[in-house]
């Protein structure tokens, strides 16, 4: 888990997630400017953003991957 290549991959995940979140935020902003009613679209983008953070920034998968450490 602590190999240097692993680090690179994890950094890349972070950046990609970040950029995706940024793009979605811009999209949200423009939805609010041009689309009426905007609510359903905004709910969708917010849920996608929340899911991105939960799964890539917070690693929710760790909760159901029960790795017992060998001590």
């Amino acid at each position: 888990m602590n190999k240097p290549s692993d680090k690179k991959a994890r950094m890349r995940i972070g950046w990609v997630t970040f950029i995706a979140l940024g793009v979605l935020t811009i999209v949200e902003f423009f939805i609010s400017l041009y689309i009426r009613p905007s609510t359903p679209y905004l709910i969708v983008t917010a849920v996608i953003k929340g899911w991105l953070i939960i799964s890539y920034f917070m690693h929710i998968a760790q909760v159901w991957r029960r790795d017992k450490d060998s001590k």
Partner: peptide
């Protein structure tokens, strides 16, 4: 850090709810 991300998620929902809805 997880807690910090959680605070961010909250804003992900609050930002459209306060600023963008119409």
């Amino acid at each position: 850090i997880k807690y910090w991300h959680f605070v961010d998620i909250v804003w992900v929902f609050f930002y459209p709810a306060l600023y963008l809805l119409s």
